[in-house]
Nucleic acid binder design. Structure first.
Lengths: 363, 363
DNA sequence: GGAATCACGGAAAGCCTATTCCAACTGCTC
DNA sequence: GAGCAGTTGGAATAGGCTTTCCGTGATTCC
């Protein structure tokens, strides 16, 4: 609130002095505590950080008191080095500002919290090389596990080095859990992208829709592929064939949906009764784009998405989508980090169709 | 996708075996690399991890080659222990699923990335004790800095132990940066909550509004207090007095806004032309609640929020709000982590009023 | 050409903790 | 009362890395 461009008024001097002296008081260590309590460092360690060995209650008290008095906190890094293993699990997401990923992060964190694990989030920016680099770093950090959410490219050119890196991570003793991609040889919490999209398509056909247009993220993305393929299957179940040119690939984001719709031909739009975007963000972007062109939702064009992100509750008309139970996903992912390797490579979390006003029953 | 309840088919055996053997191949260490390159561990260290000292290019090559061949990655924990300082900054937010905080996290992370810092996010759940506990842990982790966003209680009963803990953190050599709260004696990136709300109030009065109702988060929250106080001042500037009973305190969330509105008397609502909620989430919750009661926005009641979270772009009518430039906030926070203590305790980031359709000009 | 300086590799100390191993001590049995 | 297992405290080591300090060989300068 106050600003002091150049000369600092007296009032601030206190702060500056504190910063300037910069004593960097050496943090109190375990042996400080031990000394203060008059015991060996080994005993102090056994008292303060969960050890099997019992210590005399009397000594234990002394140690605890000394620790409290000195405000001791264990040095986590040192513990990690000494133990050779940490309690941190890393969550890799494409973009933490994305509603889908931030909700997932919240659910993973709360599940981890309950199990005494700490979570660190890293952002891949949908960049496989960065992803690989991050896993590499995590190996250096002795992370307990890495949970890989998002991205996931079909292209095996990218997959191979990633698999190599993840395998090294596992060999180091870490666990690998994937979310929503079954393309790599690791444990997976699968969101049933394919089944969800398929059921959505069936439901929409039942509502009377016949003329579809699909909006995908990048074509190489596993999520894109599965959801589009699922939708295609759902239509096929009803005897509707989807021409390849009815699928438009763009960016897996709001902007992607928006620009894709902007770029559509008037003729193309006229021949489209419903747009299915492979995630809600794209669907919302598409809606904005459509409205920008003067079209009404759902009267002129119906729209459906995927994920059921939280912000949908504020959107009018309500967006039809496929609900992904992220809380369950987070819990399941952490369960796999904790539990012993199950051999059960993939656990499907059921995705359920949520029909809303953006896709009303026709006629 | 596949599930193998009990008996595992042959296909999975490979996976199980890999997990079962559990060699936990000891990770390659710096001395492994040194040995492989035929140099001392000291030299290897100097080559691989940014050191001042030069080493013979020829040796350097050998070391780099050996490291690459062995797939060496530095053990971050060990480095932290040895160096006595880490490159991690911690970001403490109330709730990572909240659009405001997840956007802020994204901006802090990208700013940190540019400076070679790594960010770890922790969630306080708006719980001061938890906040204190986290800072304590961070001290144990030798975090380079802690950035405290959100919460912030007026009550000094809570503030005092937090200040103590933060001070210890600083004494250890860490930096403390607060976001959007000027109540504690540390460097702050201030969002100008007060000024923003004040300008919003002025703008709304100019649009013809006279009868207001305010929706606050918990009363003890600094953000609540500042924004309400600012709004009150803005009204006072125009000669409008705001009775205390026109401020309703609830929870700082969508649900808080929703339930607050649900609980309002019909008479109260009839006597309200505009509701200002202290953040967008609450405003959106309020809109949902109002609509649930059959009221139209903005014809019956106008609504305004604060923050300009990203998902507002999908809300109709557009919500009037105060835009907080989070990218700048993130950059500024990281700048304060990096830079030497400036003495300049607080840096105000300007919050600008964004008038939209939820508060049209009256008559 | 000799002395002073510099550049650079390596040995070793140090960071903080966990854990192994040993020694002392307890309480028992027979 | 000797021998025994069972406890429990402490010294010492391990863990992976950085950094100080030495010493050697090369360079520079007059």
């Amino acid at each position: 609130m106050l600003r002091f461009p150049h000369a600092a008024p007296a009032a601030v001097k206190g702060t500056m002095a504190r910063a300037a002296e910069d004593v960097r008081r050496k943090p109190v260590t375990l042996s400080d505590v031990a000394a203060a309590a008059g015991v060996s460092q080994a005993t102090a360690s056994r008292c303060l950080n969960g050890s099997e060995r019992k210590v005399n209650p009397e000594l234990r008290e002394k140690v605890l008191a000394a620790a409290a008095r000195l405000n001791y906190t264990a040095n986590l890094s040192a513990q990690t080095v000494a133990r050779g293993t940490s309690t941190t699990v890393a969550l890799l997401v494409s973009d933490i500002a994305d509603a889908y990923f931030s909700s997932m992060a919240a659910s993973v964190m709360s599940a981890a919290e309950a199990k005494g694990l700490r979570v660190t989030i890293a952002v891949t920016e949908r960049n496989v090389e960065r992803e690989i680099e991050l896993v590499r770093e995590l190996r250096g950090q002795h992370a307990r596990a890495v949970i890989l959410a998002g991205s996931g490219y079909v292209d095996s050119r990218f997959a191979e080095p990633l698999v190599r890196e993840l395998t090294m991570f596992e060999e180091m003793g870490g666990r690998v859990v994937l979310i929503s991609r079954t393309d790599l040889p690791f444990e997976t919490v699968d969101l049933d992208n394919l089944g969800g999209a398929r059921r959505l398509a069936s439901a929409l056909v039942r509502l009377g829709y016949e003329s579809f247009r699909l909006l995908g993220g990048e074509e190489q993305l596993v999520a894109t592929r599965d959801r589009i393929e699922g939708f295609r299957l759902g239509l096929a179940d009803a005897g509707i064939h989807l021409d390849a040119d009815r699928v438009i690939y763009s960016d897996f984001s709001w902007e992607g949906g928006f620009t894709a719709v902007q770029a559509m031909d008037d003729k193309v739009l006229a021949d489209t009764r419903l747009i299915f975007a492979v995630n809600d963000e794209m669907a919302l972007g598409a809606i904005a784009g459509l409205r920008g062109r003067g079209l009404r939702i759902p009267e002129d064009i119906a729209v459906a998405g995927f994920d059921d992100i939280r912000s949908l509750r504020d959107v009018v008309p309500g967006l039809t989508t496929v609900r992904v139970p992220l809380v369950e996903v987070g819990r399941e992912a952490i369960a796999r980090v904790i539990g012993s390797p199950s051999g059960e490579r993939s656990r499907v979390v059921v995705a359920t169709v949520a029909l809303r006003d953006s896709t009303p029953r026709l006629n």
